[in-house]
Simulated assay, not measured.
Amino acid sequence: MRLDLDAVSVALGGRPILDRVGLTVHSGQFVALVGPNGSGKSSLLRTIYRARRPDSGTVRVDGRDLWSLPAAETARHIGVLMQEQHSGFEFTVAETVALGRTPHLGLFDRLTRADHQAVDDALDRTGLTAFTGRRVGELSGGERQRVLLARALAQQPKLLVLDEPTNHLDLRHQLDLLELVRDLGVTVVAALHGLDLAATYADTTAVLQDGRLVACGPPAEVLTPETIGAVFGVDATVHHDDGAARFVLRPRCVCPDDCHWSCRTRRAGVGADAR
């Protein structure tokens, strides 16, 4: 599924949140949104999964205006994993994942064999087969995150929208989750906090700052020391090893003599003469 955002703007309480954002995501592409807190990443995702209608501009899927489509149709084709989803703790893992089939069912329909197979596949892909009978409320935060991802996969979406999907996950499960998402073969738009994750798994990185899209392209071309410094306010060194990027980030020095050591010790309460 192709996604096009054309000059999308959103304001809350008269304050601009998104400012004429334009972005094209080709079918099967993985696009990572990165930027500081408050840069507009979550707001942009909300316009994609119909939680927030843009004040101006257009969101199109496969060339059709998202807001002109029936809500049931978009629910079948767009899967969502948000940062915080605390409802449904009384349900079992299997029951929760089966909710992903709801957009494909009529009001009184029961799950078919194909529906059960989709649920089983999602549980298997996310390593949750052994958890099927457990209550979601009994699980750790990372395990619950995997359950919610499995629910989205059971939906069999053409477009997957992820808002900080690696929150609450340990390092191994962060990598497992993004490996899985990358290999699904569907269109993915994900807000990611870690620049290293964006550089490793995304085909395209889109950088947001103050609600504007300031850079977009292959991670190696976009996540440069200059862009990282301008957007995040840190000094960055980027190392490329076997096609993978590694970032060394340091707080930007505010001392008159541009001394990083002095700047760090000053924040720790050590006098400048301690050098």
Rank of each mutant, 00 (worst) to 15 (best):
L197V: 04
Y49R: 00
L169T: 11
R135N: 07
L249V: 15
A274V: 13
A152Y: 07
R246T: 12
A220P: 03
G269M: 08
L105E: 00
L99K: 12
P165S: 05
R146C: 05
R172P: 01
M82D: 06
L159E: 00
G38H: 10
C216N: 14
L139C: 14
L149R: 05
F108A: 15
G100M: 05
R52D: 02
R125E: 14
E73V: 13
Q85P: 08
W261C: 00
A118H: 12
H168R: 04
G243T: 07
R50T: 08
L153V: 12
A130G: 08
R125L: 15
G217R: 10
G100F: 02
I228T: 07
H193M: 03
A190M: 05
A114Y: 06
V234G: 05
A191C: 03
R264A: 10
D4A: 14
C259F: 02
L223M: 13
G194W: 00
V161F: 09
L111P: 12
L128Q: 12
R146P: 12
L223V: 04
T102I: 04
R182H: 13
A94V: 07
A244N: 07
H104K: 08
C253M: 01
R53W: 02
F89L: 12
V119P: 06
V80C: 09
A230Y: 01
L148D: 02
H26W: 04
R182M: 07
H239F: 13
D19A: 13
L139A: 09
R267Y: 00
L159M: 11
A215N: 10
V93Q: 01
L197I: 06
G243A: 11
L223W: 09
H260C: 00
V231M: 07
T47V: 09
R246G: 03
V207N: 11
D19F: 01
V231W: 05
N37Q: 01
R52M: 14
R15I: 12
G271Q: 11
L105W: 01
R146I: 11
A154K: 09
A150N: 08
L213Y: 04
V238A: 11
A154L: 08
L159A: 10
F232W: 15
V231I: 05
V222L: 10
D6T: 13
I48L: 15
V97S: 09
P219A: 02
L45G: 04
M1I: 03
D120F: 01
G13C: 06
R182F: 05
T96P: 06
H168Y: 15
A190T: 01
R135F: 09
G22W: 00
L195V: 02
R125T: 02
L177T: 15
